[in-house]
Design a binder for these strands. Sequence first.
DNA 1: ATCATTTGACCCAA
DNA 2: TTGGGTCAAATGAT
Length: 124
Amino acid sequence: MALHPYSIVQKSQRTVRVDAPQIPEDDGYTWRKYGQKEILGSKFPRIARGATTDIRMDALQGKKLQQLSDDPVSFEITYHGEHTCQLSLENPPVPSSLPELEIAQGDWQPKKRESALKYLKIYD
DNA sequence: ATCATTTGACCCAA
DNA sequence: TTGGGTCAAATGAT
């Protein structure tokens, strides 16, 4: 995915614009869509996704997709925080106890802990 | 059976 | 109260 100019929006959050054939859906992580909303003044809905590649909660990461126009279709992707998970899927680290799951790195974390536990169960 | 997506409901900050 | 982010049950895909 050839990344095009990005601008720093906040600490640990950046927005990247790419053209349609370069939508970085395949950016090395598995994203799970968990929401879609119509945005006032926007022609296209905003899609919310979270990373599910790593069963550790501190590896969860938010990602939003916003389609900006539909002629030269471009998207705006906002990453929240940083991935802390390993890319290698062989031998994924398994949390031995639940309290470990309370730690969330970066400026994004799931709103409810139960939800994160659910994510965990899926991959447990 | 496992895991992803859809979609209205729910929640909360502004 | 409204707008927007997340929840979660049903549904789809494999």
